[in-house]
Amino acid sequence: MATGGRRGAAAAPLLVAVAALLLGAAGHLYPGEVCPGMDIRNNLTRLHELENCSVIEGHLQILLMFKTRPEDFRDLSFPKLIMITDYLLLFRVYGLESLKDLFPNLTVIRGSRLFFNYALVIFEMVHLKELGLYNLMNITRGSVRIEKNNELCYLATIDWSRILDSVEDNYIVLNKDDNEECGDICPGTAKGKTNCPATVINGQFVERCWTHSHCQKVCPTICKSHGCTAEGLCCHSECLGNCSQPDDPTKCVACRNFYLDGRCVETCPPPYYHFQDWRCVNFSFCQDLHHKCKNSRRQGCHQYVIHNNKCIPECPSGYTMNSSNLLCTPCLGPCPKVCHLLEGEKTIDSVTSAQELRGCTVINGSLIINIRGGNNLAAELEANLGLIEEISGYLKIRRSYALVSLSFFRKLRLIRGETLEIGNYSFYALDNQNLRQLWDWSKHNLTITQGKLFFHYNPKLCLSEIHKMEEVSGTKGRQERNDIALKTNGDQASCENELLKFSYIRTSFDKI
C-alpha cells in the first residue's frame, strides 16, 4: 500500500482533458527560462521544448504516446526543470519506465491550478516501474492521483506527508504495488545497510526511497516546507523545498512566496507586481503582455491589467481597466465587458449561442446573426445582446428569417469595421425574408467608422429604411451602385405612401 494514499474509496472516473512563447529569463536562482504550460502528445517531438525550461508557468501534460519505446527515452533528460506552477499529468506514455532521468531536479509542483483537485496525476502508464522524482520536495496545493499503472512499484516507500501538507485526498490505487509483488529495495538494503531515512506512518517504520538508488530526502521537522541542505541544516524561511546553503534567500532552489532578481522575498516591493503567484514583474512586463494579447485571437491570451499590486489576466467583477495605466478602477454604474472572439468572429444561430455573449459591452471581433427560429426570440436576444455598444469588426445579418427588427441591439452605437466582410463591408444584410426595420432612427444613433453597407434580398425592408441608415451611420456616399439592390429590397412591402385627393359631386333626387 502506498504510504499516505487512500484505498478502496469510491472515486469519480478520471477524465483526461485534452506555445513556446518565453516569458522571460528567471535569473540567477533558476538555471534556465520560464516556459508556458505545455500539452505534449502523440510523439516526442515537442518534448524537446523543455530543454531550457527551469519553470513551467502553467501545467505540463505528457500523454497518448503509443509508439514510443524505452530506448526512445534513454537520452532524454531535462535537468534544468525545477518547478511547475500548476500540475504534472502523465497518461498512456508507452515505453517510459521512470522519471528519474527525465526530470531529475523537479523540486516543486505548486498546484496553482489543479487537474480535478490533483497536482500530480500518473494514470495508465503501462510501462512505468517507478516514479523516480527523487528531488520532489513540495506539492504546495492539491493532491496526488496514481492509478492503474500495472508495473509501478516504489510507492509504499514514499512518505507523501513530507511532500504535501495533507495526504487525506491522495488516491493511489490499482498499481502493481497493490499486489505486494514489488519487493522494493532501498539503497544499501541488499548489503544489509540502512542508507535512507525511515519514518513512521500508520504504525509502520519504513525506509523512504524513490528507487533502488535514490533515497527520499527527509528534512528535520523544524525546517517545515522550506527544505534543508545535504547536511540537514534548514533553508531560509522564504525558500521552498530545498537550498544549497542554509538561511540564505539567494540560495533557495525555489521560493515559498515570490522570486525577485535572484532572491526569494515575502512580497513584491514597489515598483514590482505579483505575477502568477510566484514571481515579481515590473510595469513594462505587464504592459507588454497586455499589448501582445490586445489584437491576438490565441486562446488563453489575456490583456493583463494591474489590481491590488498584482498583474492579473482581467479586472475583477465591479472594476474596469483604465487604459492609460492598466489599473483596475471601480465602475460607475454597470461595468464594461470586452469579449474577445477566439477566431475573430462568432455566429449567433440560437439563443444558446447568444447567451455566451451575455453582459458583453464591447465585441472584439465580428458578429454573424443567422437565426431561423426560436421561442420568445426578441426578448431572449435583447437579454443577451442588448448591452453590446461596440463591435470592432463587422455585423452580418444573414438568412435570419425569424427577425423582424434589429432593435434587440438596443445599445449598439459603434461598428468600427477594423475587419470587413469580403474585404469591403462593415454591415452586411443578406436574404432576411421578414426583416422590416433596422432601428427606430428617431431614437437610435449608430456610427460606422469604416467599410460599406450591403443589402440584398431583404424583400420587406424598404429602401427608405436603408437610406436612413446611410445618413445616420455616416456611410452615405461610400456605397457603390450594386451594394444596395434596388429590386430585391422592399419588393414585397408597401414602401411608397402617396396622399390621394378626392373630389365629389353631391346629387339628390331633384338636383344634379
Rank of each mutant, 00 (worst) to 15 (best):
K310Y: 07
T107K: 14
H212A: 14
C286Q: 03
C315T: 03
C196L: 13
N195W: 12
N105I: 02
T250S: 08
P270S: 12
P336W: 10
R141E: 12
C223V: 01
N42A: 07
R279Q: 15
L63E: 04
D177N: 14
V305P: 03
R110Y: 03
L233P: 03
Q299S: 03
S284G: 12
P36G: 15
K129Y: 08
E49K: 05
Y118V: 01
Q204H: 11
G262R: 04
E49N: 08
R256F: 07
N117I: 09
K100F: 13
T85C: 07
G203T: 07
H59N: 08
C35Y: 00
Y319L: 03
C315L: 04
Q61F: 06
L99Q: 00
G183Q: 05
D169S: 05
K67A: 08
Q61K: 14
R297F: 04
E147L: 13
I82T: 08
P197S: 12
D72M: 14
S213V: 10
P249S: 06
T157W: 03
G192M: 14
G300H: 12
N43C: 01
Y171C: 02
L289R: 12
R41T: 14
N43V: 07
E130F: 12
G318R: 03
Y259M: 12
C268S: 00
A230R: 01
K217H: 07
I84P: 01
G203S: 09
P334L: 09
A230T: 05
D288Q: 15
K100H: 15
G333D: 12
Y154A: 10
A190T: 11
F275G: 01
N138Y: 14
T140P: 07
A119L: 00
K80P: 01
C234V: 01
L60H: 00
P246V: 07
S225Y: 11
Y304D: 02
V55A: 04
G241V: 04
N242Q: 14
S161P: 02
V218K: 13
R41M: 05
A119V: 03
H291P: 02
N282R: 15
W210P: 02
F258S: 06
F205V: 13
H307E: 05
N43F: 04
C255T: 00
V173E: 12
D184P: 04
H236M: 03
F103Y: 01
Q287P: 06
L131F: 10
N195A: 11
D184G: 15
C328F: 03
D39S: 09
R69S: 05
T211H: 09
Y319Q: 14
V108I: 15
C223M: 02
N150M: 06
S237M: 05
K191N: 14
S143C: 05
C335Y: 04
F116I: 12
C209I: 01
A254D: 14
V55M: 06
I306E: 03
N179G: 12
D261T: 15
K217G: 09
N149W: 01
G37A: 15
I146C: 03
M321H: 15
C255M: 01
C219A: 07
G300C: 09
S317K: 03
D247E: 03
P334R: 14
L260V: 10
P271M: 06
Y171G: 14
D75V: 14
C239P: 00
L233S: 12
D184H: 08
N138A: 09
F258C: 06
N43E: 06
L96A: 02
Q287F: 14
D248G: 02
A190G: 06
T250F: 09
E180M: 11
T85K: 04
D261A: 09
I146H: 00
N195P: 08
E71N: 11
S143E: 07
N295V: 03
G111T: 00
P249V: 03
K310S: 07
H274T: 14
Y94K: 06
I146T: 01
G333K: 02
N257T: 08
E33H: 09
P70C: 05
W278E: 03
C311L: 04
R162Y: 09
C293M: 01
H59M: 09
P197G: 05
D277V: 04
S244T: 04
C328L: 02
N43H: 07
I62M: 06
V121K: 00
E33F: 01
I222L: 05
G300R: 10
D169P: 13
L106P: 00
N308L: 10
A190S: 09
E314Y: 04
T329N: 09
H48E: 14
R69I: 11
K224F: 06
V108Y: 03
I172F: 04
Y87E: 00
I82F: 11
N149V: 03
E314P: 08
E33S: 14
N309G: 13
L133P: 01
T107G: 02
K80W: 07
Y87F: 03
T45Q: 07
I122W: 00
Q299A: 08
C219V: 04
L155F: 08
G192K: 15
I201G: 14
T157K: 06
P270I: 14
Y134E: 06
H290L: 07
L128H: 01
F283W: 06
N135H: 06
L289D: 02
V108G: 01
T229E: 06
V305K: 10
D247Y: 14
I56D: 00
E180R: 12
S323C: 05
V253M: 11
L327T: 07
V108L: 09
L240T: 15
Q303C: 15
N322E: 00
H127F: 04
N242E: 11
L60S: 00
N309V: 03
D277W: 05
I82H: 06
C186T: 11
Q303E: 15
E97M: 04
K129I: 07
V34F: 15
C182Y: 03
N135D: 06
M321R: 08
C215M: 15
V34N: 04
